[in-house]
């Protein structure tokens, strides 16, 4: 199952190096944007964090489907860990976005589709964590978590689409005919390295957190067993 090995250590070290490299590139390699100035540099980590937020929730939904099909708790450990990490990165994306928005849009917050979608997504997954806390039986907890991760993930694109039907002022960098921000190669390279670094970091964190989740589950079972020894019965649920 899940265990610590050489690969995990290697991956953690690689993540460390890559994040360091990305950080150095943002500081020294990427140029200062003409109109926005130094604050534009928050953008590299902002986009990377937002990407990890979404990737994490995709992982949770996929692991939810896998769990419901195979009933192996390891998928639940991964899904739960992904949600926790995803929430952290969504928060990073939101707050770094605010730091950028204050000087550029002259407001910390605006009701823009991407901002609202990210925040509603975060609330969906806060709900996920609360739901899990409300269930004591590990098997039922895994089942409910999987179901909610799937339905939650289905609603994320719908939220985005519906708020897109209203208008957006968020800059579109990729996949737009006219970019709001003209990017030169040095910026693209920094962006790419940041995204790769964050993805590797995510993989390493996910692995560590899933291991921890597995340990927690073992501890839970041990506790239940001692209760049986002490009191002779276990209360269901």
């Amino acid at each position: 199952m899940l265990f610590v090995n050489k690969n995990l250590k290697l991956l953690s070290f690689l993540a460390f190096l890559l994040v360091l490299a990305a950080f150095a590139m943002v500081l020294f390699y990427a140029p200062i944007e003409l109109n926005m100035g130094i604050v534009q540099k928050v953008f590299y980590f902002h986009v990377s964090a937002a990407w990890i937020g979404m990737l994490a929730f995709l992982v949770a939904a996929v692991c939810g489907i896998l769990y419901l099909n195979k009933k192996q708790l390891k998928y639940d450990f991964i899904a739960f860990s992904a949600v926790e990490i995803g929430l952290l990165f969504t928060a990073i994306a939101n707050f770094s976005g605010m730091i950028w928005a204050k000087p550029i849009w002259n407001t910390w917050w605006t009701w823009d589709p991407r901002l609202t979608t990210m925040t509603i997504m975060a609330f969906t997954y806060i709900g996920y964590l609360l739901l899990r806390r409300g269930v004591d039986n590990p098997e039922k907890r895994a089942r409910f978590g999987s179901v909610y991760a799937i339905i939650g993930f289905a609603s994320v694109p719908l939220t985005f689409f519906s708020s897109r039907l209203l208008r957006t002022i968020h800059p579109t960098i990729f996949g737009a005919d006219t970019g709001d921000m003209a990017m030169i190669p040095a910026m693209y390279q920094t962006m790419a390295v940041s995204i790769i670094a964050f993805t590797v970091l995510f993989a390493a964190l996910l692995w560590h957190r899933s291991l921890l989740a597995a340990r927690e589950s073992e501890l839970e079972i041990l506790r239940a067993q001692t209760e049986v020894l002490e009191f002779g019965e276990v209360l269901d649920d």
Binding site: I120, L130, L131, G134, Y148, G152, S155, T159, S162
Partner: peptide
Amino acid sequence: LLLPILLFPILMP
């Protein structure tokens, strides 16, 4: 207590 917390984000669209 939990129902609205889980339901409202999904119903936002």
